[in-house]
Simulated assay, not measured.
Amino acid sequence: MIDNKNKIATVFGVRNDSSIAFHVALKLHRSGCKVALNYVPETRDEVLFLMESHGMDTAYASDVDVRDEQAIAQFLNKVYSGLGPIDYILHGVAFGSQNVMCYSLPGSDEPAPSYIDIPFEDLMDSFNISAYSLLRICRVAGPLLAKNASVLTLTYNASQRVFPGYGGMSVNKAALENIMLYLASYFRKSGVRVNAVSAGLVMTTSSGGINGVRKLRKIGKVTAPLGNVTAENVADTALYYFSDLSLKVTGNIHFVDGGFNIMGIGIDEE
Rank of each mutant, 00 (worst) to 15 (best):
C102F: 10
Y103D: 02
S104Q: 13
L105P: 05
L105G: 00
P106N: 10
P106M: 10
S108Q: 11
P111L: 07
A112M: 05
A112E: 03
P113D: 04
D117R: 14
I118V: 13
I118W: 02
L123M: 06
L123P: 03
L123R: 14
M124L: 13
F127N: 06
N128S: 15
A131D: 00
Y132W: 14
L134H: 03
R136E: 03
I137D: 06
I137F: 01
C138M: 13
R139K: 15
V140W: 03
A141H: 10
A141N: 11
P143D: 00
P143E: 02
L145S: 10
L145A: 07
K147I: 00
A149R: 04
S150P: 00
V151W: 00
L152P: 03
L154Q: 09
T155F: 11
Y156L: 12
R161Q: 07
P164R: 11
V171C: 15
N172W: 10
N172I: 06
A174C: 08
L176R: 14
E177H: 08
E177L: 06
Y182M: 11
Y182A: 09
L183F: 02
L183H: 07
S185M: 11
Y186V: 01
Y186L: 08
F187L: 06
V192G: 05
R193L: 07
V194L: 12
V194Y: 06
N195F: 03
V197F: 11
V197E: 05
S198L: 04
S198I: 04
S198F: 03
M203R: 15
M203N: 12
T204V: 08
S207K: 12
G208P: 01
G212T: 04
G212V: 02
R214D: 00
R217W: 01
K218F: 01
I219T: 09
G220I: 02
G220S: 11
G220K: 04
A224I: 09
E232D: 09
E232T: 13
E232W: 08
V234H: 06
A235G: 05
A235P: 03
